[in-house]
Amino acid sequence: MTLAAASHGFLTPSGVEIAFLLVGLVTLGAAVVTVTTRQLVHAALWLVVALGGTAVEYLLLTAEFIAWVQVLIYVGSVVVLLLFGLMLTKAPIGRSPDADSGNRWAAVAVAAASAVALVWVVVDAFRATWIELGTPQGSTETTGRSLFQYWVLPFEALSVLLLAALVGAIVLSRKGDTAITGDGGTPPGPGPGTPPAPGGTAPVARAATGPVATPGPAPREEQR
């Protein structure tokens, strides 16, 4: 600790620890409120506090680039996606009494038991271990160098994974769209809806020229 204090300078290590402890308390409290509140939108907003607190912890651990990536991706996009999901599933705005399921006390027991076990093991294992935070570990230059020198292949594989996830999300939401327009387009107007279908190769032609050739679903598509 004294060595880290000598090399660090403006913040004594106990100061870093105190800051880490305070931010950790805020983060943990926000996380607990996130999983216990009965207002669904408030849960998403408290999740912002928890994720932002984790970003501050990354900054205190001198992982600067990861902290900003955390702010960008989690706070910027994941929480917004979750809020969109809450709105699109028509989540109740006020207090919803059935936010917790029936096995709540079993969940409390499991979480408390695992917390006690994990904290005990971790404290017992790392009782005499200190992190020396003298030199920053995760500046943008360091992270970029290590990422593009040693981790290029996983990085590219990750981009393929992201592309697959993107295509998968589009297919998941689009298949529902075509199924709904296909099923919803034929029952109201059986007259104009059915004649184009039996003509020729059904699935391929419908997949290729579906919204253009069939006169029935086309205005529905335009309305959306």
């Binding site: 620890e17 999983v35 499991v110 979480a111 992190i131 935070l133």
Partner: peptide, 18 residues
């Protein structure tokens, strides 16, 4: 910084998520 601080915080966060 003592390593116990981030490790304990991570364990508690994990159990909260659990």
């Amino acid at each position: 910084m003592h390593l116990v601080y981030p490790a304990v915080l991570a364990a508690l966060l994990f159990c909260t998520g659990l």
